[in-house]
């Protein structure tokens, strides 16, 4: 776990305290921009966003995670395979899909290490994302279990595994490099 998140919390706390001081002094939530000295009004309304996402059509995917499997869908009519899984076939417009488990060993197509992170990811250390091609016939984008990009190259064989992401403590999946011949 990174301590960067807590440093930012500390910074925000100092900033908010300064605003409170200014409000009790003059009654205005105004701050002066550090670089330009221009006055700025600090918005007094804060909105926290979280969405509720319907997953009934792909509930099998989540049941698979609980069993340690990462599943995709295949159209019963035209055979097209989908990962991310979807309950509707974009090719033939039907909803007759079957669920399959990803079993093959994929190959890394590309990867990156994210250093500058979004607000909701600040509590993580730098993370490696990659895209791998699977023999089933689709690509998967996910984090790659490696401590640095120097351990990886194009074509590195990877398997897909279910992991419990911390600190949120929920199930998701990760690409895990395998030694050749594993």
């Amino acid at each position: 776990m990174s301590d960067r998140g807590s440093k930012i919390d500390e910074f925000i706390k100092l900033f908010l305290n300064a605003i409170e001081v200014e409000k009790s002094r003059r009654g205005l939530p105004l701050i002066t921009d550090e670089k330009t000295n221009d006055p700025l009004f600090f918005d007094q309304r804060e909105l926290r966003l979280r969405y509720l996402l319907p997953i009934k059509g792909i509930e099998d995917f989540f049941e698979g995670l609980v069993k340690g499997e990462v599943r995709y869908t295949r159209c019963k009519r035209c055979g097209r395979k989908y990962f991310p899984p979807q309950p509707d076939c974009s090719s033939c417009g039907t909803r007759e899909m079957e669920w399959m488990r990803i079993e093959g060993t994929g190959e890394l197509l590309t990867f990156s290490k994210v250093v500058v992170k979004p607000t909701s990811y600040l509590h993580y250390d730098d993370y490696i994302v990659g895209v791998a091609r699977f023999p089933e016939g689709f690509n998967v984008l996910a984090w790659v279990r490696a401590s640095d990009v120097s351990e990886l190259e194009m074509g590195t064989p990877v398997r897909i595994e279910v992991e419990r992401r911390q600190p949120e403590n929920y199930l998701t999946y990760v690409l895990v490099p395998t030694k050749l011949g594993d």
């Binding site: 990867f111 990156s112 994210v114 992170k117 909701s120 990811y121 993580y124 990659g130 895209v131 984008l141």
Partner: peptide, 13 residues
Amino acid sequence: NFGLTFPAYYALY
């Protein structure tokens, strides 16, 4: 699940 960023997308390319 994976916290992609705009620079990260282009970094993959």
